[in-house]
């Protein structure tokens, strides 16, 4: 356990000094800030525009950081051979992988927190009240990021950085559209295709489950039970993906 923490903290420290991260956070904040300008173009709906853009920015930049930093954490490590020295120490491979994951989760937490602070500041400037819906939406965005990082770690445990990034990006896009697989399946007569589509529906992460930005912005109540079940789903899904990653990683040859 302690080795996982050591690797997680090192991951955190390393990435905190990487300028790419600051650039991404900076642009995230810029976009959140720009919501004030954009909101002046509309009549009456300013509060909604600001909240909408703010949440979307936090989500978008969180996903970008999760994918690109997430991929770098494992596959770049293999490419640049830093992993050789780590695994030549008394460190189990799963400890390395979980340590990396936890470190990245910590980085994402800090990044999200910075953007949330920027967002709240804008809300304060715009004299918009802070509803509990926004907090719920932001929490679920973070859970979504944890799922995406797990997927990124899984792909990078067996393929190249470029492929991992493309695959993870693809999963992110599909993950928001899985409900359509169901709808399509229901309309089809062929049982086999239906079965495949249903299988895909359960296999792929249902990222839309974590999207409560709409209700949050429009002040529609979000049931606490929904939030709890979404968090449980996210944590469980990530755990399974990480387990698969560990199994793949354990067998991998580092040529």
């Amino acid at each position: 356990m302690s080795r996982i923490i050591v690797i997680a903290l090192n991951t955190f420290k390393e990435n905190l000094r990487d300028k790419i991260l600051y650039n991404l956070v900076f642009f995230g904040l810029l976009l959140i800030g720009s919501s004030i300008l954009l909101s002046t173009l509309t009549m009456g709906e300013q509060a909604k525009i600001i909240q909408d853009i703010g949440l979307a920015s936090i989500n978008l930049f969180g996903v970008i950081i999760a994918i690109f930093v997430g991929i770098g954490l494992v596959s770049k490590e293999i490419e640049k051979r830093t992993i050789y020295t780590i695994l030549a120490k008394p460190v189990q491979r799963y400890q390395f992988l979980l340590g990396r994951y936890c470190g990245l989760a910590l980085i994402l937490l800090v990044n999200t927190a910075i953007m949330v602070v920027g967002f709240f500041f804008i809300l304060l400037v715009g004299k918009i009240s802070l509803g509990s819906g926004l907090i719920k939406a932001i929490s679920l965005i973070y859970i979504e990021l944890l799922v995406i990082v797990a997927v990124a770690v899984m792909f990078s445990s067996f393929t190249t950085p470029t492929l991992s990034a493309s695959f993870t990006l693809a999963i992110c896009v599909i993950g928001h559209l899985t409900a359509d697989l169901r709808v399509l399946g229901a309309k089809l007569q062929n049982e086999l295709t239906k079965g495949i589509l249903d299988g895909l529906y359960y296999m792929l992460p249902n990222l839309e489950y974590f999207n409560v930005k709409g209700p949050a912005v429009h002040g529609i109540a979000i049931a606490p039970l929904y939030v709890v079940s979404a968090i449980a789903y996210g944590v469980l899904y990530s755990a399974v993906i990480l387990l698969i990653s560990c199994v793949i990683f354990q067998r991998r040859d580092f040529k």
């Binding site: 390393e14 051979r81 050789y84 780590i86």
Partner: peptide, 24 residues
């Protein structure tokens, strides 16, 4: 390892400390 590449954002001191911690 051959032609080693290490965590470039760590200082020499932090780097060695990190590796030491991996040994407990």
């Amino acid at each position: 390892p051959e032609a080693p590449y290490f965590y470039e954002y760590l200082t020499a001191e932090e780097f060695l400390t990190f590796y030491g911690q991996l040994f407990g």
